[in-house]
């Protein structure tokens, strides 16, 4: 296996994103199993202060001579190629995210290395690495072996624990100079999400409430949980009909189709019209007083109990966890 594993740290508007920690966690494991070192690459004009957060890496390489974070994919791929040569790295981890879209493919072509996309598990095995890719929207997994442990691996967001990539230690930081080419794509500006109501199709966490929430005041409890989780509240049709939430928050056949990382179905029975709108969520957590509610047939986790009791407790615990 290669001596150095590179992780392309990802940041969006001055914040290190979760995928970075997921990759660091995954990279850490691989590095330990194969006796390699883990090196994070952090790019961006104002990236330097963020480097301190990447304590899980053995070393952080920072390039802040240009607005690398908004540079086109081919430029970033070129920069990474240069870093690989400098560090003798053979394995590179990138996020399978919108931010990094295309960088992996381009890097693979430039270096002649194989690329493994949609990776949701990776382990070192006899000098190589076996990656598990989730294909066809997660319906099928394929294991791919990088025999010499060399390649470009795109890590699927949400597949690895974030915690494993966080360490309370300051990593050694090293500045690197990277080749800057005249870009054919230039960043102009950010376009903020349209104000008005939140777009529930774009949330990572949705707290869905159904008639089990009982009153408009109780919707507030769900709102609090959504807030601490950085998500939004949505609802089944009867709740919308009551006017407790606007129409734009309706999930289901006659509302929105959503695919968040986590979907809470709180006091929602799981009628087919509702199920249709949220069935593809990555993780569905159902809370219902009725142990026979159909929602439990499709959810990943179920709690038989009163949502009004659980909500405050959960909100507290999440707050505590987030610190």
């Amino acid at each position: 296996m290669a001596n150095t594993i590179l992780v392309l740290a990802e940041q969006l508007r001055g914040e290190v994103t979760d995928i970075t920690f997921e990759m660091l966690g995954a990279g850490r494991k691989l590095a330990e199993a194969s006796g390699s070192s883990l090196c994070a690459v952090l790019l961006g004009a104002e990236a330097a202060p963020l480097a301190a957060k990447l304590g899980a890496a053995d070393k952080v390489l920072v390039a802040d001579d240009a607005p690398w974070d908004l540079a086109p994919a081919d430029a970033v791929a070129g920069a990474l190629e240069a870093v690989m040569q400098q560090t003798q790295a053979g394995l590179v981890l990138l996020g399978c995210t919108n931010v990094a879209a295309g960088i992996g493919s381009m890097l693979a072509v430039k270096t002649g290395l194989p690329l493994v996309n949609f990776c949701r598990a990776a382990k070192a095995e006899g000098g190589g690495v076996v990656c598990t890719s989730q294909l066809f929207g997660g319906k099928i997994y394929s294991d791919v072996k990088l025999a010499d442990g060399k390649g470009v691996v795109c890590i699927y967001p949400g597949a690895f624990p974030v915690d494993a990539g966080k360490r309370d230690q300051a990593p050694p930081i090293e500045k690197v100079d990277l080749p800057v080419a005249a870009p054919k794509v230039t960043f102009k500006q950010y376009l903020e999400p349209e104000t008005g109501d939140v777009d529930i199709t774009k949330q990572n966490v949705l707290v869905g409430v159904g008639r089990g929430i009982q009153t408009q005041d109780n919707v507030e409890l769900a709102e609090e949980l959504a807030q601490v989780l950085g998500g939004a509240v949505c609802a089944s049709r009867p709740v919308i009909d009551q006017g407790w939430l606007p129409l734009s928050r309706q999930v289901g056949k006659s509302g929105m189709t959503v695919k968040p990382r986590v979907y809470f179905a709180l006091g929602i029975s799981g009628a087919p019209e509702h199920w249709e709108g949220m069935q593809n969520s990555q993780c569905i957590i159902a809370v219902n007083t009725d142990a026979k509610a159909p929602i439990f047939d499709g959810a990943h986790y179920g709690v038989v109990g009163d949502v009004l009791e659980l909500l405050p407790a959960l909100t507290e615990k999440v707050k505590a966890k987030k610190g």
Partner: peptide, 10 residues
Amino acid sequence: IAMFRDAVKT
């Protein structure tokens, strides 16, 4: 069945 069971609830 779908329409009226829903209406009974709403």
